[in-house]
């Protein structure tokens, strides 16, 4: 019974990872790609490591998995934010305008 839950969580996580990959390949500019990156990677890591946590139970390996989930959930949106801010000044987005002129002064 528990194994079925583990497998369902694991492959749901892999599915979200694949959606993120397809999004990065398909979407037109950096900011749209960041949408796919931050959201689906955060949930994908949470589901894959969460399934392993369910498989393992609360042991020394389980505690390490919990720390990895917490770190990724904090660091992934922050990394996305800082890439977006670094791109905002210089990047021409998919309509051909400079992103900065579209959004006003920073």
């Amino acid at each position: 019974m528990r194994e079925i839950f583990v497998l369902v969580l694991l492959f749901t996580g892999v599915f979200f990872f694949s959606v993120g990959t397809i999004g990065v390949l398909r979407l037109p500019d950096v900011f749209c790609r960041l949408h796919a990156n931050t959201k689906s990677d955060t949930l994908g890591v949470g589901l894959v490591l969460g399934s392993l946590l369910l498989y393992e139970g609360l042991s020394s390996a389980g505690v390490k998995l919990i720390f990895m989930i917490i770190f990724i959930w904090i660091t992934n949106p922050t990394a996305g934010h800082i890439i977006a801010r670094a791109s905002y000044d210089t990047i021409v987005d998919w309509t051909g305008q400079l992103a900065r002129q579209k959004g006003g002064e920073k």
Partner: peptide, 18 residues
């Protein structure tokens, strides 16, 4: 753009962790 490359590397990192 360089931003695209950083996004891709960031995704590769999280997949490698899994």
């Amino acid at each position: 753009t360089p931003g695209d490359r950083v996004v891709a590397i960031n995704m590769i990192t999280s997949k490698t962790i899994a």
